Amino acid sequence: MSGYDNNPFAAPDSDNPFNDPSVTQMTNSSIDPVEQYSPFPATDGLATQTAPGTTSPYQPAVLQPSTDPSPQVTAAAAQANLLRQQEELERKAAELDRREQELQSRGATGKANNWPPLPKSFPIKPCFYQDFAEEIPPEYQRVCKMMYYLWMLNCVTLFLNLLASLAFFTTGASHGVDFGLSILWLVLFAPCSFLCWYRPVYKAFKTDSSFSFFFFFFVFFCQVVIFIIQSVGIPSWGNSGWITAFTAISANKAVGAIMIIVAILFTMCAVLSVILLKMVHSMYRRTGASFQKAQQEFSQGVFTSKTFQTAAASAASSAAQGAFQANN
């Protein structure tokens, strides 16, 4: 009859979810459900071990000390940089000076100067470059060399004139003026004749320059006149010419003979200068040079000269400043 004790209207046991054995076990257990739950299931051999924490590849931020240099360090670095730049500039300036001196020693031709031919140990260096075979056309070399020999003869004659005037001075104190002027003529005419008529004719033959030809003709004509005056020998003019030589021979024959030799040399210089002047003029007429070309060369040389350009710029600047001040 037990089967009839149950409530026929009750729901069957299988339909009640709370009658599930797992549920009833949990509800009847005395263990706290929170303590019982473990999110990390135990595994064999690893349940009692503590897993070490993984090392992160990123380190925690650490405050670094400031690396900005102090004002003293910055000033020292700037001063060292300025000193280094100054040394570099001084080195470059010295190099430029050395190159400029080399260019000056080589001259406008770009070759080392060879005249006057002085020893390398001599403190004075050559000032000019001269080579007849290289720079002078063959048809002009003979005349150009003769002009050079005439200049050398003039220098030797001026030196002998100094000695003759000194000997003449020994015969009488009144002849001291001739001796003093003879020193002046040697010091003045020897270098000036080289620069004023020999170098211009050398340049004229070298570059066929009309301006150099005209400059040579003007100066050399004056030189011919000077040769004639020296050969005449006007007293108290410092020249041992014919008049002075005949005056001295009456007082001292030896001194007179020396002065006659000098008078002969002065006469030779005068005659050769006239002959060479005619030869150069005939060659000049065959070169096609003219006065118009000389004017063009002179104007081009002046306008391209750095000295002229500097002077013109200074004059223009001064004029502009004066006009500005006048307007104010």
Rank of each mutant, 00 (worst) to 15 (best):
Gly110Thr: 03
Ala164Glu: 10
Gln130Met: 15
Pro137Glu: 06
Phe132Gln: 06
Val143Ile: 14
Tyr129Cys: 04
Pro116Phe: 11
Asn113Trp: 01
Asn161Cys: 02
Leu163Gln: 09
Gln130Leu: 13
Asp97Trp: 06
Ala108Asp: 03
Phe159Met: 11
Leu103Val: 01
Asp131Arg: 08
Val156Leu: 15
Tyr140Thr: 06
Glu90Lys: 14
Thr109Cys: 00
Tyr129Phe: 15
Asn113Phe: 01
Gln79Arg: 15
Cys127Val: 14
Gln85Met: 01
Glu139Ala: 01
Met146His: 11
Ala78Ile: 03
Met147Lys: 09
Phe132Pro: 02
Leu160Lys: 03
Pro126Asp: 12
Gln104Ser: 12
Glu139Phe: 03
Val156Ser: 10
Pro123Ser: 05
Phe128Lys: 00
Leu89Lys: 13
Pro119Arg: 14
Glu87His: 05
Ile124Tyr: 02
Pro119Tyr: 13
Pro116Ile: 13
Arg106Pro: 02
Asn81Gly: 07
Phe122Met: 10
Gln101Phe: 12
Asp97Ala: 11
Gln101Tyr: 09
Lys125Ile: 03
Gln79Leu: 14
Phe128Glu: 03
Arg91Pro: 01
Ser121Asp: 15
Phe168Glu: 04
Leu82Ala: 07
Leu166Thr: 05
Trp151Thr: 10
Leu82Gln: 13
Asp97Tyr: 09
Leu150Met: 14
Gln104Ile: 07
Ala108Glu: 02
Trp115Val: 03
Asn81Phe: 02
Gln101Glu: 15
Gly107Arg: 00
Gly107Lys: 00
Arg98Pro: 01
Phe159His: 06
Pro138Ile: 08
Leu89Asp: 14
Ala167Ile: 02
Leu163Ser: 06
Lys145Asn: 08
Asn114Leu: 06
Ala77Trp: 05
Gln86Asn: 12
Pro137Trp: 12
Phe132Met: 12
Glu88Val: 08
Asn114Trp: 05
Arg142Gln: 11
Ala108Asn: 00
Gln86Ile: 09
Arg98Cys: 02
Ala164Arg: 10
Arg98Ser: 04
Arg106Tyr: 06
Gln101Trp: 05
Arg98Glu: 13
Leu166Glu: 02
Leu103Pro: 00
Ala78Asn: 15
Cys144Leu: 13
Gln79Lys: 14
Leu150Cys: 12
Met146Phe: 03
Phe169Gly: 03
Gln104Glu: 10
Arg98Ala: 13
Trp151Cys: 07
Leu103Gln: 04
Val143Leu: 14
Arg99Leu: 03
Gln141His: 08
Glu102Asp: 10
Gly107Val: 00
Phe169Cys: 04
Ile136Glu: 06
Glu134Gly: 01
Asn114Ile: 10
Ser121Arg: 15
Leu96Arg: 12
Gln79Phe: 10
Asp97Gly: 07
Phe169Gln: 01
Glu100Phe: 08
Pro137Val: 07
Glu135Thr: 04
Phe122Pro: 07
Lys125Pro: 03
Ser121Phe: 13
Leu166Met: 13
Ile136Asp: 12
Ala93Val: 05
Tyr140Arg: 12
Leu82Met: 12
Gln86Ser: 09
Cys144Thr: 15
Phe122Arg: 13
Pro126Arg: 07
Ala78Thr: 06
Ala77Pro: 02
Leu160Trp: 07
Ile124Trp: 11
Ser121Lys: 14
Leu96Glu: 11
Gln141Pro: 07
Ala112Tyr: 06
Glu95Met: 04
Arg84Ser: 11
Thr157Pro: 05
Leu166Tyr: 13
Gln104His: 05
Gln141Arg: 15
Glu87Ala: 12
